[in-house]
Computed example of a mutant assay.
Amino acid sequence: MSELIVIAFSDETTGFEMRTELVKMQKDYLIEMEDAVVVTRASEDDIQLHQAVNLTAAGAVGGGFWGALIGLVFLNPLLGAAVGAGAGALAGRFTDIGINDNFMREVGHSLQPGGSAVFILVRKMTADKVLARLEHFHHRGRVLQTSLSTEDEEKLREALSGDHQRAIPPAS
């Protein structure tokens, strides 16, 4: 079962920095994420979702490949690639995996203009090591919402508030 974590920041840059750090941790096998999205609010009505994966582009590339391959069979690879890319892009455009876009836009309206929020859908993680790696985000973010247990959510809140002694247990 996946856990949802939403952390807000007063500026846009910090949200992107956190997502970058989470991706690094995923490469180090400390966290396994299904989705990581940065939501920014530039002005009153300007809410933008910065997805980690552009499904439209991915669909176009995959569709172009398969279209060209099928086109080779029917002796017209260019037409097959064009049709496949168009169909793949359209399929990618209307595919929504991970965190619900409408939910993220709703939460985005609660941000102050110029702020950001990071939405993370976590499959599994090594919590103590992840909290230690997020050390430089102390006093910079606040937890808006999680589906974590009360105890784990409190540890995350303490880690972001800068209370390092209580948030991360000492190593044995």
Rank of each mutant, 00 (worst) to 15 (best):
M1E: 09
L4A: 09
I5G: 00
I5H: 05
V6Q: 00
I7A: 12
A8H: 02
F9C: 05
F9R: 11
S10H: 11
T13Y: 00
T13A: 03
T14H: 06
F16S: 12
M18E: 09
T20V: 01
T20K: 10
E21H: 01
E21K: 13
E21T: 12
E21W: 01
L22K: 06
L22C: 12
K24E: 15
K27Q: 10
K27V: 02
D28A: 15
L30E: 05
L30T: 00
I31F: 07
D35T: 07
D35I: 04
A36C: 10
A36N: 07
V39I: 07
T40D: 00
T40F: 03
R41I: 01
A42D: 13
A42V: 10
S43F: 10
E44P: 02
D45T: 13
D46T: 06
D46C: 02
I47F: 08
Q48H: 11
L49S: 13
L49W: 01
Q51I: 03
A52K: 11
V53Q: 11
N54S: 15
N54T: 05
N54P: 12
N54C: 11
L55C: 06
L55Q: 13
L55K: 13
A57E: 05
A58F: 10
A58V: 13
V61S: 12
V61H: 07
V61K: 00
G62Q: 08
G63Q: 08
F65S: 04
F65Q: 04
G67F: 06
I70E: 01
I70M: 12
L72V: 06
L72I: 01
L72E: 05
L75N: 11
N76Y: 14
N76R: 07
P77M: 10
P77W: 02
L78K: 03
G80P: 08
A81V: 06
A82W: 04
G84T: 03
G84E: 08
G86S: 14
A87W: 03
G88S: 01
G88H: 02
R93Y: 06
T95D: 02
T95L: 14
D96M: 09
G98M: 00
G98T: 06
I99M: 05
I99N: 08
I99E: 09
N100Y: 04
N102S: 14
F103C: 02
E106S: 09
V107D: 02
Q112V: 13
G114C: 08
G114R: 05
G114E: 03
G115T: 06
A117K: 08
V118W: 08
V118L: 13
V118N: 00
R123S: 14
M125C: 12
T126F: 10
A127F: 11
K129R: 12
K129L: 14
K129E: 15
K129V: 06
R133N: 11
L134G: 03
H136F: 09
F137G: 05
H139D: 07
H139A: 15
R140Q: 15
T146L: 00
T146R: 08
S147Y: 03
L148N: 05
L148W: 09
S149V: 00
E151N: 12
E153Q: 14
E154D: 15
E154V: 02
K155D: 01
R157N: 09
E158C: 01
E158Y: 04
A159S: 14
D163E: 12
D163Y: 02
R166T: 14
P169M: 05
A171W: 04
A171T: 12
S172G: 13
